[in-house]
């Protein structure tokens, strides 16, 4: 990987970059796929704007796309709680996963979230249950699922959409049990020691590749279209391989992927 990067960034620098909104959800969707048709709502409580989902074509093949979005301008960010889904956001994702399963469509998720929203309403509506069911449903899907972290992959709120056959990360993204601030505050009772936390948490793509938490690091480039072309090609190839597996093997392999931890 090293040759692809001009220089190795420190974990603290990667944490900062991961939060810079360098890639936006809509841009990724239109850059990687064609004919995106957005689907709304969980059918029970509402439509979580922080979870964008729908149908699209990947090199001419229909797929289901689910993206956690932090929002662009300030109003959009407020509406999306900076990419922190409510329970009905996860239930919307579950609905789209089940729909994909019914029609044999592969699922691709893109994740950029500091974590599930910590709100009173979120708790009252079962935030834990929503994540728990999203994880469980993902582990039963008879279709290929690939998850891509493109910014922050924060905690259970990220895992809810990353219990997949493969997990990839953008070069400047993070995936961790908690934010460095939360980690420092729980472990050392001092959120200000977040840089120290970032350094020891093993949250960079290279660390996670070494630990087999992820399969692939997507090299970034100033040319976003180059990044998207690469993702399109890699997705097409990997999904082809996964789709050729017998369903029971596919599911068994996905579960085995997590059994090793």
């Amino acid at each position: 990987m090293v040759s692809l990067f001009r220089r190795e960034l420190t974990p603290v620098q990667i944490v900062k970059r991961a939060r810079e909104d360098r890639f936006m959800a809509r841009e990724i969707i239109s850059g990687v796929f064609t004919d995106f048709f957005e689907l709304h709502g969980d059918r029970y409580a509402g439509d979580d704007k922080s979870v964008i989902g729908g149908l699209a074509n990947l090199n001419g093949e229909p797929v289901t796309v689910i993206v956690i979005d932090k929002g662009s301008d300030i109003n959009d960010k407020l509406a999306k709680r900076n990419g922190s889904p409510e329970p009905y956001g996860y239930r919307k994702a579950i609905r789209l996963m089940k729909q994909a399963a019914k029609f044999g469509r592969p699922i691709i998720t893109f994740i950029n979230t500091p974590g599930a929203f910590p709100g009173k309403t979120a708790e009252d509506q079962g935030q834990g249950e929503a994540i728990a069911q999203s994880i469980l449903e993902s582990l039963k899907l008879p279709v290929p699922m690939i998850a891509i972290v493109y910014g922050e992959g924060g905690s259970g709120g990220a895992l809810a959409l990353a219990t997949a056959d493969q997990v990839w990360m953008f070069q400047n993204s993070t995936y961790s049990v908690l934010s460095p601030e939360g980690f420092a505050s729980i472990l050392w009772k001092d959120a200000k020691r977040h840089d120290e936390a970032a350094a020891v948490m093993g949250l960079t793509p290279n660390d996670l590749l070494d630990n087999h938490v992820i399969e692939y690091i997507i090299p970034e480039s100033r040319s976003h279209s180059r990044v998207f072309s690469l993702i399109r090609a890699k997705l097409t190839e990997e999904i082809q391989t996964l789709a050729n597996m017998p369903t029971d093997k596919l599911i068994a392999q996905r579960r085995a992927r997590f059994r090793k931890f």
Partner: peptide, 23 residues
């Protein structure tokens, strides 16, 4: 909640146990 000292491996336990629940 999570075992902070074990980092991402703690998070992975959620998926590992869930897979056994599914079976």
């Amino acid at each position: 909640g999570a075992r902070m000292q074990e980092g991402i491996n703690s998070l992975m336990q959620m998926a590992k146990v869930s897979a056994a629940v599914a079976a």
